[in-house]
């Protein structure tokens, strides 16, 4: 499972997937068909930038700047995380060079 996404790909949440803050429980949740997922704080920061406008590259740049982490590390974390979501059909990545995401 080494589905690597193209860095210039633009991810967005699939129809039927929503990220929202859950006030009652004081946490972020990712809502999907018959699923409530609890993304961890790092995942939440990534998901907040998945807006159908920013490319993966841009997301990595922003995160690396905000959290002053080495870009390389951020890039691989983001790739692994988003590839996992794409495999589950939770995000779609639009780009001619997408590895998977056909679902």
């Amino acid at each position: 499972m080494t589905a690597t996404l193209a860095a210039n790909g633009v991810p967005r949440l699939a129809r039927g997937v929503r990220l929202r803050h859950d006030e009652a429980r004081g946490q972020w949740v990712l809502l999907a068909p018959e699923r409530v997922l609890n993304p961890d704080p790092v995942a939440v920061e990534i998901l907040k930038k998945v807006d159908g406008a920013r490319s993966i590259d841009a997301i990595v740049d922003e995160l690396a700047t905000t959290f002053t982490v080495e870009r390389q590390t951020v890039a691989s974390d983001v790739d692994v995380f988003l590839a996992g979501l794409a495999e589950k059909g939770l995000i779609e990545v639009t780009s001619p060079l997408v590895g998977d995401a056909a679902s």
Partner: peptide, 11 residues
């Protein structure tokens, strides 16, 4: 509806 995943424990 039993498919909702358990959240992390609350206090």
């Amino acid at each position: 509806m039993s498919l909702v995943e358990e959240p992390r424990s609350r206090v």
